[in-house]
Simulated scan of single mutants.
Amino acid sequence: MTSMDIFKLFFNHDLRLDKLAKRNANKTKEEVEATLDDFMQPDPTFSKFYITGTLLKDEKFGINVLDKSKAILENLNLVFKNYQFTATTNDSFNSLTNGLTNIQIGEALIISDNDRLPEIDLATLTIDEESKVGHKKDEIRSVIESGAYLLYKEPAHHGFDLHLFSEENIYPRLFEAFKPLVDKEFRFFSINNKRMRSERHFYFETWTLDNPPHGAEEVFSETEI
């Protein structure tokens, strides 16, 4: 088998922002009781994207193992051109690629186009696989409500994936950034995560690459959004 990158962009749109809030059991009576004005307002939503890949020949999993890993990160960097990048360690970087190179797996970058950062301890955003402390919903909500994006360097089987949280739906920008990479050795799948029901579906490329499950659409050079 010749070398082939299988690149997957999972998307979830219109997720309710209140799902990133603490549970009702921990709220005060005042927080639980919504006013009529609150009730009449549309529910604020957010989007999240999971970016992963498989080097099919070796069945290795992670963005970093792909032949075009450098190009993927460079194109993603262009999506956030002229933004500021602050790590959960409070270190600042001049580009997304530089930031991802310097942070550890489980850490994240806060991507902002202004000087305003969420008023939280950024270190609390770090995920810890050993202690099983995962994503903290309240902290994530604080970031995206501030107008910033949150990009995690997620653990993968053979390195790392990327997990992006955004208050706005930036799928079109991501789609246009990655589509130019498509060629005979780089296959790009856009995937509605709500339709992926199991780990077997997540890794569909290992058993049904040319007949992907419902919700996974292959992107070609002529594909339009």
Rank of each mutant, 00 (worst) to 15 (best):
I127W: 02
V133C: 12
D43S: 14
T35R: 12
E30S: 14
D43Y: 07
L73C: 04
K29R: 15
L117D: 01
R141M: 13
K81H: 10
T97R: 08
T126M: 11
A21Y: 05
T86E: 00
E74S: 11
E30K: 11
D115F: 08
T97N: 05
E139R: 13
E33D: 10
V133R: 14
A71N: 11
E33V: 14
T28S: 12
L125Y: 03
H135G: 12
K132C: 10
T54P: 04
R23A: 15
K57W: 01
L66A: 06
N26S: 12
N98D: 08
I110H: 00
L73I: 12
K48H: 11
I105H: 04
L66H: 02
A25L: 15
L96A: 06
G134D: 07
K137F: 09
S47P: 00
F39Q: 14
N75Y: 06
N75P: 05
T28I: 07
L109E: 00
T101N: 15
T45K: 09
D58F: 10
A87R: 02
I120L: 08
N64K: 06
V79L: 01
A25H: 09
D58N: 10
D67K: 15
F49P: 00
T45W: 02
I105S: 03
V65P: 00
P118C: 08
F93M: 11
T52D: 06
K68H: 11
G53S: 04
K27E: 03
K29S: 13
K81T: 09
Q104W: 00
T126R: 13
F39K: 15
R141G: 05
I111C: 08
T89Y: 01
I103A: 04
E74H: 09
T126P: 03
L125W: 03
Q104D: 13
N98G: 11
A21L: 15
R141T: 03
S95D: 06
D37H: 06
N82I: 10
V133P: 05
P42M: 09
N94W: 09
L125K: 02
F93G: 04
V65M: 06
N114E: 07
F39L: 15
K60P: 00
T35V: 04
N102D: 07
V79T: 01
A25S: 12
S95F: 02
I111G: 01
D115E: 12
E59D: 11
K48Q: 13
E130V: 15
I105M: 07
G99F: 04
N77F: 07
T28Y: 04
T35S: 14
D138H: 12
K81A: 12
D58M: 11
D58G: 04
N64G: 06
F93E: 04
I111S: 03
K68W: 02
L96N: 01
S142G: 10
F80A: 06
L122T: 02
L78K: 12
G134N: 06
A108I: 02
T101Y: 09
D91M: 13
K137P: 10
K27Y: 00
D128R: 11
Q104L: 15
P118S: 08
E139G: 07
K136P: 03
G106L: 07
K81F: 07
D43M: 15
D38E: 15
T54Y: 08
P118V: 07
L36G: 05
F80E: 03
T35W: 03
N64L: 09
N82A: 14
T126W: 01
L78T: 10
L76H: 00
L20V: 05
K68V: 05
